[in-house]
Simulated assay, not measured.
Amino acid sequence: MSTYLRRGFRVTRGFRSSCRLRSARRFRSACRLRSARRLRSDRGVSILEFVGFLPVLLLIGMAAIQLGLIGYGVNQAGSGARAAARVASQGGDGGAAGRAAVSGWLDPRVTPEKGAETTTATVQVHVPGVIPLFGGYDVTRRATMPTDD
């Protein structure tokens, strides 16, 4: 910033362009007041915006985690149902095979039904809720295999 005097006036070049040509006495006080007002009015605005938007960000993050858990539960239930139906169709313990194929924290309930030509296994898992206002979700998958005799 460069400053020079011309006929009793102070002329500045630089970041104080709004106070370009003022008398020497009024120059300092006017520019200081303007910059002080500008600084005080912007103080804390960004933190207020962040605090206001933080619950929305948390809700979006928790919803994404919940959707991921539901997808994982669907995948696990399908794998358990296929394993239970395959083992039960060959004459084994389908319930134990279905429970072994699913993660234990999902609390799987396996029901194999052996028929004359096909064996159907149903697996129901409970996916816990991440968002406090909503409960958990129950996911059910079925798989059918031909019975081997």
Rank of each mutant, 00 (worst) to 15 (best):
M1A: 06
M1L: 03
Y4M: 11
Y4N: 06
R6V: 12
F9H: 09
V11N: 03
S18P: 15
C19N: 09
C19W: 07
R22S: 07
R22W: 04
S23G: 11
R26I: 12
R26A: 10
R28Y: 05
S35N: 02
S35H: 07
A36V: 11
R37H: 12
R38A: 12
R40H: 13
S46W: 06
E49Y: 01
E49T: 11
F50I: 04
F50K: 04
V51Q: 00
V51T: 14
G52R: 01
F53P: 04
F53V: 15
L59E: 08
I60A: 14
I60C: 00
A64P: 03
I65S: 03
Q66T: 09
L67A: 14
L67M: 13
G68M: 01
L69Y: 15
I70T: 14
G71C: 00
G71V: 14
G73R: 11
V74L: 07
N75K: 11
A77K: 02
G78F: 08
S79W: 11
S79E: 13
G80T: 12
R82F: 09
R82V: 07
A84K: 01
A84C: 06
A85G: 01
R86C: 03
R86W: 10
V87R: 00
Q90C: 04
G91N: 05
G91H: 13
D93Q: 08
D93Y: 13
G94P: 13
G98I: 08
R99M: 07
R99H: 04
V102F: 13
G104S: 15
L106S: 03
L106K: 04
D107G: 14
P108W: 09
V110G: 01
E113P: 08
G115T: 12
G115H: 03
T118N: 12
T118F: 07
T120N: 04
H126N: 11
V127R: 10
V127I: 12
G129D: 00
L133Y: 08
F134Y: 15
F134W: 13
G135K: 12
G135Y: 12
G136A: 09
Y137G: 11
D138C: 04
V139A: 13
V139I: 15
R141S: 14
R142N: 14
A143V: 08
T144S: 06
T144E: 05
M145N: 03
M145R: 08
P146D: 00
P146E: 05
T147I: 01
D148A: 10
